[in-house]
Simulated assay, not measured.
Amino acid sequence: MSASAKSPPFDPADPLGLDDLLEPEDLAVRDTVRAWAGDRVLPYVADWYEKGELPGIRELARELGGIGVLGMPLSGYGCAGASAVQYGLACLELEAADSGIRSLVSVQGSLAMYAIHRFGGEEQKQRWLPGMAAGEIIGCFGLTEPDHGSDPAAMRTHAKRDGGDWVLNGRKMWITNGSVADVAVVWAQTDDGIRGFVVPTGDAGFSAPEIKHKWSLRASVTSELVLDDVRLPADAV
């Protein structure tokens, strides 16, 4: 190193100099999410925690859709098509504010939206993804069960064919966004193995009682999903 070369000044907020590894677009994404969380989460989250609730979740979801973090790494259908680094930075900032807010975003995008984007038919994608990306539609992801956790091999929720329809029965537990969701991606045992189903939450036989008195993720909607003879068309799979 030249004797005249100077080391960059030490930044106590970034002691390892990681910001130097990021592109300007990455830093812009991070700063946008940090500013949003500072304005819309940090002033209120202590009260949300004490009450064990997340009021105004639909308004928050629309705002998160407005800054492009719902389904952020997905392409098309109103999604941002961002890089994995940018999505990671966004989640880091949300997590720094409150894990419940990060859970709202990651369950919406990385679980419910990703499953539809990756495995759904074009009609399902067109029906659900643009609204989910905008925060106008909230989704949840029904995998975990009361007796077996997130072990698909032990899953008890099942779907049986009835003519051209499917009929779902079972229970899911600890489901983020469940009580406010408009659509649920539900995993079930079938005669052909485990399959995913896109379930509009207004369908008969579907209910999602909220779980209260949690000790963690208190500023988050967490629910049980109850499926009692929920009838779905063939194209829901």
Rank of each mutant, 00 (worst) to 15 (best):
L89A: 08
R102P: 00
A46Y: 07
D47N: 13
G38T: 06
R62L: 10
A80E: 05
W48M: 13
G38H: 06
E59H: 11
S99P: 10
L54D: 02
L70S: 06
S83A: 01
V85M: 12
K51R: 15
G52L: 07
G56D: 05
A35M: 08
I101P: 03
G38Q: 12
A37C: 10
D26G: 03
C79W: 00
L104M: 15
L89C: 04
I101C: 03
R102H: 10
Q86W: 02
S103T: 14
V29M: 15
A46P: 04
G78W: 04
G100I: 14
Y114V: 04
Y87F: 10
L92G: 06
L64G: 11
G65D: 02
A96H: 12
A80S: 13
D39A: 15
C91N: 12
Y49S: 09
G56A: 10
L74Y: 01
L104S: 03
D47Q: 15
A37D: 10
R62I: 08
D47C: 05
E63W: 00
R118Y: 00
L27A: 10
V45I: 15
T32I: 12
D26R: 01
Q86I: 09
C91I: 14
A37H: 05
A84S: 15
G68T: 03
L64Q: 14
F119M: 04
E59T: 13
D31L: 07
Y114D: 13
A61P: 03
L89Y: 11
S103I: 01
A82V: 03
A28V: 03
P55R: 13
A46Q: 15
D47P: 04
M72K: 00
L111A: 06
L92D: 11
S106A: 12
E53G: 04
A97T: 05
K51P: 01
A84W: 04
A82Q: 09
G71H: 01
E95G: 11
G52W: 02
L89K: 04
S106D: 14
Q86P: 02
A96I: 05
L64I: 05
L27D: 02
R118L: 01
Y114W: 10
P73N: 04
L89H: 05
G68K: 00
Y114S: 13
G100M: 09
G88V: 09
Y77S: 10
A28M: 07
G88D: 14
L104C: 08
R58Y: 10
A84I: 08
G100E: 14
R58Q: 12
K51E: 13
S103Q: 13
R58M: 12
G52S: 03
S83P: 01
L104I: 07
V41A: 07
A97D: 07
D47Y: 05
Y49C: 11
L70M: 11
S110V: 03
G68I: 06
G81A: 09
A90T: 07
G38F: 09
S110L: 11
G56I: 06
A35G: 02
L104Y: 05
H117Q: 07
L111V: 04
G78S: 06
A46F: 05
S83C: 02
A82C: 04
S99I: 13
A96P: 00
M72R: 00
A112D: 01
P55D: 13
R102Y: 02
E53L: 09
E50P: 03
R58F: 09
L89T: 06
W48Y: 15
